[in-house]
């Protein structure tokens, strides 16, 4: 695993804890785009060679909440940057940044990603 991401690679975001995850649901069942605003960088797990089920199982062991999935290509379509930032506890840890120099995603980027996200 290195810092190269294929466009078809999937990224998984845990929206947690459950009480907060609930707060991001709109009444029409969609997700608020504010769930993607994080000035410290939007933490995700990269899928790499794992299936959705494997990733969800792994994340649910560490995190309580809901798991949202987005493709790398979707991030690139709005000019966001995906960075591979493994940690000692999580070799899959990555972050989605607004650009090379800005961690926070713009509203345009958050809105686009929210519309293209699948909740697993």
């Amino acid at each position: 695993m290195n810092d190269h991401f294929e466009k078809n690679e999937k990224l998984y975001r845990a929206i947690c804890p459950p009480e907060v995850a609930a707060l991001y649901w709109k009444r029409d069942g969609s997700l608020s785009y504010r769930a993607f605003a994080d000035p410290k960088g939007l933490s995700v797990d990269r899928g790499y060679d794992r299936s959705d089920a494997e990733v969800v199982d792994s994340m649910k062991k560490r995190l309580k909440g809901m798991i949202a999935r987005v493709y790398v290509r979707t991030c690139l379509e709005v000019g966001a940057t995906v960075k591979y930032l493994p940690s000692a506890k999580n070799p899959y840890h990555s972050e989605i940044h607004g650009s090379e120099n800005e961690k926070l995603l713009s509203k345009h980027q958050c809105f686009y990603l929210a519309g293209k996200t699948t909740v697993l």
């Binding site: 804890p17 459950p18 009480e19 995850a21 609930a22 707060l23 649901w25 069942g29 969609s30 809901m66």
Partner: peptide, 17 residues
Amino acid sequence: LKRESRMMAYGSRLTSA
């Protein structure tokens, strides 16, 4: 269906931590 299910699970009630 998934959306409805999510709404039931998350949307209307926040449970105690």
